[in-house]
Design a protein around this nucleic acid. Structure first.
Lengths: 213, 213, 213, 213
DNA sequence: AATGAATGAGCATTCATTCAT
DNA sequence: AATGAATGAATGCTCATTCAT
């Protein structure tokens, strides 16, 4: 399966640093930006705070980035592999579908929890910037299509409810998991354990798909 | 069913207008605020735009409201009944659970679609203001508890999967519907018809709950 | 003859103040702007200096003007009547054309000298801002046309050289006077007296037009 | 007639390049500067644009020049012969003064037209930098003195109006031509042909000087 | 109650110039 | 000689909020 092929944001950006020193400065800025974003959120983060946190002059920021959105894109690019949607792995006929689903859901919840700050940041910025909204849509579409294929396969095998629209069903169930993760780990809603969440969500998935246990 | 029990936001607010003229001005401001919020979003809306839209002087705004959040609370209070979560009505033993669920989901999707601007506003503002985030949590909890009770009853009757945590399951399924509605009607994701959405979501609900058809 | 009909600059501007207090503040800003512009020139003038000179808060500037160009337009509007190009008054057949020309030239030189700072400002800003360049062209055209008519009349009367293109000739002679005034009073070129300048320029005009003395 | 006696600007400048490579880089910068100045004007031209246009690193600029004024001086030095004022050539008693004047005016207008960008640059920069203002004054003085001598000679010969102050008259008439050229070719005022301009200006010159045709 | 003028904090961004490699 | 990264000063403009009429 490997890493998700999400391309970089089509963000206008500066050219890559030509020297090692430049690469170091750029990196320092990306790390500082992550710190500041996680601490203050996207809207309240000031460019000067990022520069200060990175220990460079205010103007140096613009040597590498065109603005806040641009660094954010760089920050997100760095953690792209962890920014998952719940995704079923390919499974062979002999695999137990319930286990596959459970594994995917649990992995997703745990990744979300680990990167909660960043995931919240994504939601915040998607609310505010069309470019990131587009990115979110693109990612979701990619995941939904993948899961739709897995679901279609289960239907062909007579394992899943054939009456379901595989695309819509896959999307809805993905969204259920990701939104629950958001509410639990970002919004602070409820205090259920990741285990409890994973168990319930998996049971809902399998039931929803009509998979017999 | 009756009115939703969500109390008004504990927003600091000015006293109610004493005169009829004052009442009219206040009302004009609330309506203007809704117009401006729906047009520009919460963050980009400026108090002066609201005053201008209402046809009053800038300063008059503060006679009635303490700030942007305060008017927004007033706007939301006016349309409170339209701000729904998917909710199962009480149902008697003779009712068909599938029909009850389908009706609730369809009604919710349609209400969401009708009030898409406002629902998007809620999401935007929840992202930005803790007080509205709290409001959102409170509402969700109320709905989830209601639906949890309905679900528990279905379990008692042997209709729904007894292995499910009724509270978590109710929350997850509600969240699935409301997030799908947000993506479809606010974010512009996909182009599925409300019928298709309602059908798929209902099928997922019933399957997830283990209700036999 | 009366005031020149030069319309206001098509500059985007704020609405006029509604109260007497507002009118006073606006006026203070216009006067402060003139002071600052004459002292520092257009490019080096800072909005905050103008606000400070007027004794108002920085932000108040924007209650009345949209920017530096906008105040400058207001400053220039106030002194519009003094901002002349050399212009022949209407004259009857019995008037001595030489005297008419001499009077116009002298008046122009004196007005230019009096408003030298402002005239220099005009040249500076025309160099920098297309809107003012347009204004300068428009004014010049208006003056040239007027003088061209006077010249054509002299030609009809057999007083002026009939071989001259009245429009081009009028423009060239006007330009000669105004540029000499600029060099003398703004640029500091030479140290000839206004009398000497007026005498020479008039002699050149009359000779150029072929008027017999 | 020979080269114009205007010395180079007393601009502070770096030493001449020692190596052939250095000479090439310097030359590339001068040419790039001319390109950028003609394209963007003096004020809007950025040093980094000049370096980029020359294909060298930003810092290399300072190996050869101290700043923008300094390169500009180098650019102007390269085209010094083209930066003319209207100037009468020496003429013998047998020459027709009208022809001499006409030739000078036409040559000037054509040179101005050819170098309009550069002439406009000179005006722009004179508005902004005292050093170039001084240069402009010095040139004008040199030309006016030359023409004053020619005029005085015509007066001695009984050809030109003896009542004119030769210096002021020469200056005024030169200024008339050069300003008309500026307005026509830089500012875009009017659309008269160079022929028409030359004809009118010459007629005005000869009339102004009282030369019989 | 309404008016509308005044306040003033707050921050992004550019670009000439330097200087270590 | 050339490179190119780092510096950092400098200022325009918005808009929520107050308060004198």
């Amino acid at each position: 399966m490997g890493a998700m092929p999400t391309r970089a944001l089509p963000a206008q950006t500066r050219r890559a640093p030509a020297s090692a020193r430049g690469a170091r400065t750029r990196q320092a800025l990306v790390e500082a930006a992550r710190t500041v974003f996680e601490r203050d959120g996207f809207i309240d983060a000031r460019i000067t705070d990022i520069s200060a946190e990175a220990g460079v002059a205010a103007g140096s920021f613009y040597t590498y980035f065109t603005g806040k959105e641009d660094v954010l894109a760089a920050v997100l690019a760095e953690v792209e592999d962890e920014m998952l949607h719940p995704r079923l792995r390919e499974f062979a006929d002999r695999d137990d579908p319930v286990t596959v689903i459970e594994t995917a859901n649990r992995a997703y919840l745990e990744a979300y929890r680990r990167n909660a700050k960043l995931m919240g940041l994504m939601e915040e910025v998607a609310q505010v910037d069309e470019r990131f909204r587009r990115l979110r849509r693109r990612r979701m579409r990619a995941f939904a299509e993948r899961n739709a294929q897995a679901l279609a396969r289960l239907q062909e095998q007579g394992i899943a409810d054939p009456a379901l629209d595989p695309r819509l069903a896959a999307q809805a169930l993905s969204v259920m998991v990701s939104r629950m993760a958001y509410l639990r780990y970002v919004d602070g809603f409820g205090n259920d354990s990741t285990d409890a969440l994973a168990a319930t969500l998996t049971r809902l998935w399998t039931g929803a798909l009509g998979i017999r246990r």
